[in-house]
Design a protein around this nucleic acid. Structure first.
Lengths: 199, 199
DNA sequence: TCCTTTATTAAACAACGTTCAATTACTAGT
DNA sequence: ACTAGTAATTGAACGTTGTTTAATAAAGGA
């Protein structure tokens, strides 16, 4: 068939990204193919390339969505925590929860990225930055006298710890019997770090 | 041709794994195909399947090699450090160095793993455990009274921090101008953690 | 020398991402 | 209402991938 115009260009884009997200969450990025996405939205594979450049391009948009909801869940975790340390730990738990609930999506977002020197889209770059900012804001409350450099570094350190925990747990490389051990690890890590950092 | 017996089964296995490692280091795991490996060792693709089960199986053996050299470099980093804290930081730097020098290999070892619940070969499992043990040993010196559980958890926390830093740097998600920022992050993380943990 | 055994190959398969000419459906002009 | 033109969508193709398997060629024992 020729022009259908059942959907506008933007509707089509949203349709594709949403379908891809569902497929990724259910089957993992490896098993999500152009043909499967096309089938899910009721078109043929060729059509995808009139809306997106690439399969990678589609995944990139999926990841923008992912970072957005991750950011939202982190801000929600902060709410109601007047203590910055508690807020940071709550963020860490939200991060772990996201990774645990949406294993495949988290995998696509953070480990299925291109190497090396991923030319991460500037949009993604900003989204990740704003995640860092959430931590920095709490740290600044905790230690008002800290320099920008100090804050930046500390936020990266904490973020690295939380991310590392999530990543290792995801790939089953923590080797701990208890299923909730990752929460204990983050708690321990953040607590001990902050105690000696804030002063 | 039929039987060549230029190489024994074990020689062939070593040949394949070594060639694959070289290819991975140079081009990244994504671009390493069965046909390329076969060409590198002077055989046809089909032969690989008489020595290994899978391409994945080959990568798994490559990763065993990788974990072995990573372990070696970590133990070497410890040598000459009487202070446990210094030893742990030296291990962290060795870890970062390995990740930076062999980007693609590190990527294959830790992020290109299967999901979820990677049924990691028991061999890999033990190798990773012995890496954890290196950290635990140093922690035990630092805090002789600590329980096993305490040591296990602290080792995981530190390891997660170091690994997270390496992983985020690898995928260019730290967004720091200075190229050696990852070392600063690990230094900061380990220092602050240990100060309040040891006592 | 022949025959069995076995290592290796060549060719095939299905599935993949991607491209592009052909086709179809809609829109505008008369 | 009819036709021409435009643009969306397809279908089929290409080169590549991992993997399997029947055929083949070489080695060793009789």
């Amino acid at each position: 068939m020729g022009r259908r115009s059942d959907h506008s260009r933007e509707e089509l884009q949203e349709l594709i990204v949403d379908a891809t997200l569902s497929l990724v969450r259910e089957h993992g990025a490896d098993r999500v193919t152009a043909r499967r996405i096309a089938q899910a939205v009721g078109y043929t594979p060729g059509m995808l390339y009139s809306v997106f450049v690439n399969l990678q391009d589609i995944f990139l948009h999926v990841n923008q969505l992912g970072l957005f909801t991750l950011h939202k869940q982190c801000t929600q975790a902060i709410e109601g925590n007047s203590d910055p340390g508690a807020a940071i730990k709550a963020m860490g738990r939200a991060y772990l929860r996201f990774a645990a609930e949406h294993t495949h999506q988290f995998d696509l977002m953070f480990t299925r990225t291109e190497l090396p020197a991923a030319p991460t889209a500037t949009s993604l770059k900003h989204q990740i930055h704003s995640l860092f900012d959430l931590v920095e804001t709490q740290l600044r409350i905790l230690k008002p006298g800290a320099s920008d450099k100090e804050l930046t570094l500390a936020a990266r350190a904490l973020w690295s710890g939380v991310h590392g925990t999530a990543a290792l747990r995801l790939s089953n490389q923590l080797y701990l019997d208890e299923s909730e051990a990752d929460r204990d690890i983050v708690e321990l890590l953040v607590n001990n770090f902050l105690i000696s950092w804030q002063r």
